[in-house]
Structures are given as structure tokens and as C-alpha cells.
Nucleic acid binder design. Structure first.
Lengths: 329, 329
DNA sequence: CTGAAAGCGCTTACAG
DNA sequence: CTGAAAGCGCTTACAG
């Protein structure tokens, strides 16, 4: 590959000047030499080595994203949004997949640290992720989910409890008196918020809640609900903590010959594009993925992520068919 | 961050020795000094700077993947498989998303070249991707789909035509006499193979094929099929070039009140995990994602990707409910 | 405005 | 077995 030295030679100047013109600074270059350098660079098809640049310059122009499962549609859409937001600033997004494994989450983070990414955006599989390697390296990080106060990092997310409250309230308004809460891992901060929101909506109305939990995969949710819904006294409605789980519920209903929403109403959570194409289309809470992506990058870039700042963005309850006819209108 | 120099100082030795012990070579180090270095490294929490290492060593221990849409389940599962296969060799997978845009595909590839990835695995949005930047940099590349002979690169994929033939034959055996082929972009190499395989299966049987095409997104497929299936003489079966398109068909059928498979039979293609959880479960061609991932990395690592080697791996026809009852058994 | 030189943090021949 | 030094390809004060 051709180097700055090659270009300098051909343009009859020094590598310093090559650097100045390629980067438009930080020093001025006379129009004449500038043109000669550009010309030489074009002829030799010069592409600066990003590694060398990063090593001396101290910035890699890259940000690392780590998600629990990149094959999950929600994280996929999130990655896409972040990639676009990063590209808008000339940055490259590196995507890491922790495979729901805390150990791999750790190793992915350290791989990013070793490569000196400028910042990290993290969706942890853990309530209290290990951020040590990042802080030690002085790499800003922002989490995309609520975290306990004990975690010394900033986060940005919707208000899960409020969103859960909104969705559950909608179910209550439909008049369902037995509702199942299909939650994530029992002890996660997110699960707690789903639980709180749902109870706040149902307790006042005297609606009973049956809480069950499953992994985030569709298959796991289907399995759990196959059991629950096979019972004659099965709940009339199911609130799900993720769309994926909701799809599992839809599958279980289909398998059991239960029609949605006539016999079982279902709501999801996340609101990816696919939620409009499920059978039937899914009532869900839409997370503003693009806003989250943009704000996340703004925070880490602006140094706002230092400390423990917990920012909240708006959500939207998207009412479709899976929760039942809109009798209340 | 602590550097090799810091460690060397504390261990009372040189950076060369630090390097030798950290990398277990290429020179031997006496057990005593080795222990001192390890000790110092531990105490200082030393992590070698991957940038510096790559710059001098010439390898970045990273491979770049570029896919048309990371939010697409098939590419998501592929990324996961590649990430695992890469990690097994201590390599990091960098995932790039071209967003179905040839321009962004180009820029993603050059971003990878600039960062000197050791190899690139590419699913192009183009029949004839521009591989110039890669070849110029001497970076091995392997494509994960069939390419015209004019493209000077190696590929690994299933035999699409054979797979199409198998799926379409299955449909013919069900006795359907009017079949729609929902294909991808009309002029793509992949589409051509779907077409060839389907026709080979149906022509002999005297079955008529109606070919339509849609983008790879679920929404686009749904739109196309909503039109086609609304007609009273709609086809009795639909062969889809991807699972995503099949989900769009399922949605369209649901919308139109057509039951699957009783009124419309459907087959997909790709066979991601979700295909088992659609309503009804989808008959589809399963691509051996893990085999593909492993072979792809073996090829680029072993230098086998040089030249134009086109390798084929086996597929599997997974028969589920969407294509109709198994009358032929 | 521009060139010679130091430095980023490693690795690896080159001498001992 | 180990140290001093050159080199990877950039960037950026430092002198002119």
C-alpha cells in the first residue's frame, strides 16, 4: 500500500505537508503544493493507514456497541440506527455480540478497549456490568437500559415503568380481569420496572396478575406460555416484556387453537418494524430507536456521559389488533 | 493506560522482553524474568495497545463482515456464527451494514481496508461488487453468495438452484398446479438461480409459474402479495426466495382471510430459527449458517480465497406446515 | 508556508 | 537469555 512518504516524494514535499493537506490542517498549505499533494495522492491512490493515524493522533474514530444478541431484531435495528448516527460524524461502529453471556460481554468490552474505541454503547446482560476496563482506559460509556444507582455510569432509555403502566392500563381498559405478565429474568432492573408499572395499573382496578418469566428468545417464551395457556383457567390477556416474547405467545396461542385477540389478548414491548406484520399485528410500546441512538452518541461525544446521568426519552403506545377491539373508544 | 515501558521498568528489564513474554515468543525468556514481567503486568493491569501491535506486527486480528442489513434475521444469525468462529481463533469480527446501498457498501469496505482488517467476508447488495480496494491492499475476501464468473473472487454458498429445485419439487408433489415465484431483484445472480431451479421443477410437470419480485423486507413482500392474492384466480402456492418474504406472504394471506396452507401454500428460504415459530410454521430451505461461517474463515485464513474458487455447501429442506399436509407420504 | 525530527506503543532482527 | 535500536505509518510541535 502506498504511504504518506510515497506521496511526499512524488509531490516533492514532506510527510508533514501531506498530513496537513489530507487532514485539512492543523497548518495551512499553499494552494500550489496542496494541489501537487492531492494530485500525487490521487495518482498513487493513497489511503492513510487508520492504525498509524490513531496511534499518534489518539483517536480511532470508532465507537463500540455491545448487545446481548445481534440476531434479535430490536438490537439489529438499534445497531443500524447507531451505525447511521456514527457514520454521520465520520465514525465507524464496531458491533460486538455478547451472546447473553457475561463472560463474553467482558471480553468484548476489553477487545474494544484494546482497540482504543473512542466510546462504548452498552446493552448489558447484567444489571451491574463490569465497567472497570472502560473507566481505567478513560473511555466514555453509556448504557441503553436502566441501571441500579450503584453502577457508576450514565444511561439513556425510555421510562420502562411508565411504558409498562401505559400498556397495562390499556389492557385494563379493555376490561380484562386476568392478566399474565410474561417478564424477563426475575431480578433484572428492567424486569422490576415492568412489574412495577403493570402492578400500578392493575392493582387499583383489582385485576389479578400472574407473573411468569422466560428468556428473551421466542422459543423460550412459547414454551412457557404453552404450559400456562393450556390450563382451562388461563389468563385472558398477556402483557409481554418484549416483542420477541409476544411472538412466542402468539405462536403458543396458535398451537393451542386459541384465537388472538378474541380468546387471548397480547401486548408486546419494543415496537420493531416487524410488530406491524405479526399475526395479528401487535399492540406494543415503541421505543424511539433513532432518538436513543442519536442521544447516546451525543452524550459520549460531548463528555456528558461522565458521572451518572440517567436520561429518559419518550415512548409511544402503538395500538393494533392483538389487544382486542377498541371497545373503549 | 500503562505501557510495555512501564512494565519493563517495574520488572527491571526491556520492552523487548515484555513483548516476548506477553506473546509467548518469538524468543525465549528465562523463567525468573518471565515471572517478574508477568507479576509487573498484573500489578499494573497492563493491556497491550492493539493499535500499536497491529502497526508493527502487520496483523490486526480482526475480520470485517459486511451485510446488506444487520436487522435482517438471516444476516444476524450469520454475524453471530461468524463472530463465534472468529473468536475461536482469537479474532474480532467487525460488522458493517451497507443498508442495501452500494455506496455505503463501498465506504464500509474502504473503512475496513483503512483499518487493515486481516480479511473481509462480504454479502454484497450487488451482483458485481467492487473489490478493488481489497485486492489493492492484499486483503483476502470471500463472498457468501453466488457471483458471476466476471468477479475475480472466491465464494461459498449453498447451491441455490438445487435448493430451489428441491423446494419447488416438493410443492409440485403436493399437486399444486399454479405457483407464484416471489423472487428478489430480477437481475441478481441469486434470483436467476431461484428462477432456474423452480422452473426446472415445474416445467416438466406442466405447472405454470407467475414470477413477481419484491425487496427483501417483509413489508415489501406483503404489499406485492396483497395485490396478487386479492385476485380470484390467485396462485395456489407461493415459493419465496427468502423467509422474510414468506412472512410477508403469511401476513398478506391473513389480511385477506386466506388460510395457510389450506388456501395458499407457502415455502420460505434461509431457514433461520424463527421459521419454526411463524403462523403456521414455515417450510423452508435451511442454510447451514455455521458451516458457511467456519468455511468462510478457513478460506480467507488459509489463503484459499485467492483466485476464484466457488465452493458449495449442503442445504436442507425443512418441511413444516405452511406447504400443506404431507399427502404424498 | 514548509522541512527535519520526535513520538504514539508496540515487534523484531541485531548484537552481545 | 537479554538490551539497545530500528521500524511500522502516521501527527504535531519545533525551527526556520
Amino acid at each position: 500500500m502506498t504511504t504518506a512518504r510515497d506521496v511526499a516524494q512524488r509531490a516533492g514535499t514532506s510527510t508533514a505537508v501531506v498530513s496537513y493537506v489530507v487532514n485539512n490542517g492543523p497548518r495551512n498549505v499553499s494552494p500550489a503544493t496542496r494541489e501537487r499533494v492531492l494530485q500525487a495522492a490521487r495518482e498513487l491512490d493513497y489511503r492513510p493507514n487508520a492504525l498509524a493515524r490513531a496511534l499518534s493522533h489518539g483517536r480511532t474514530s470508532s465507537v463500540g456497541l455491545v448487545v446481548p444478541d445481534i440476531a434479535n431484531r430490536f438490537f439489529g435495528e438499534l445497531a443500524r440506527a447507531l451505525e447511521e448516527a456514527a457514520a454521520a460524524h465520520g465514525d465507524l461502529l464496531l458491533i460486538g455480540d455478547s451472546g447473553l453471556d457475561p463472560e463474553r460481554e467482558r471480553s468484548t468490552i476489553t477487545a474494544f478497549v484494546d482497540r482504543r474505541v473512542d466510546a462504548v454503547v452498552l446493552v448489558s446482560v447484567h444489571d451491574t456490568p463490569d465497567l472497570e476496563p472502560l473507566q481505567q482506559a478513560g473511555i466514555p460509556v453509556v448504557l441503553l437500559h436502566p441501571v441500579p444507582d450503584s453502577v457508576p455510569a450514565s444511561s439513556i432509555s425510555i421510562d420502562y415503568e411508565e411504558a409498562a403502566y401505559a400498556a397495562a392500563t390499556h389492557l385494563v381498559e379493555h376490561g380484562y380481569t386476568s392478566i399474565a405478565l410474561l417478564n424477563g429474568p426475575a431480578d433484572a432492573a428492567g424486569s422490576r420496572q415492568h412489574r412495577n408499572g403493570v402492578h400500578r395499573a392493575t392493582d387499583a382496578a383489582g385485576v389479578a396478575i400472574t407473573e411468569v418469566s422466560s428468556g428473551i428468545a421466542r422459543a423460550q417464551a412459547a414454551q412457557v406460555m404453552l404450559d400456562l395457556l393450556a390450563r382451562p383457567d388461563h389468563p385472558r390477556a398477556v402483557y409481554c416484556a418484549t416483542d420477541e416474547q409476544a411472538y412466542g405467545v402468539l405462536f403458543a396461542c396458535h398451537r393451542l387453537g386459541l384465537s388472538v385477540p378474541e380468546q387471548v389478548a397480547v401486548t408486546g414491548f419494543d415496537g420493531t418494524e416487524h410488530s406491524a406484520y405479526s399475526l395479528p399485528p401487535l399492540t406494543t410500546v415503541r421505543q424511539p430507536i433513532h432518538d436513543i441512538a442519536r442521544r447516546a452518541l451525543d452524550m459520549v461525544r460531548g463528555g456528558e456521559s461522565a458521572g451518572s446521568r440517567h436520561e429518559t426519552v419518550g415512548f409511544e403506545l402503538v395500538v393494533r389488533e392483538s389487544c382486542g377491539a377498541h371497545a373503549e373508544r
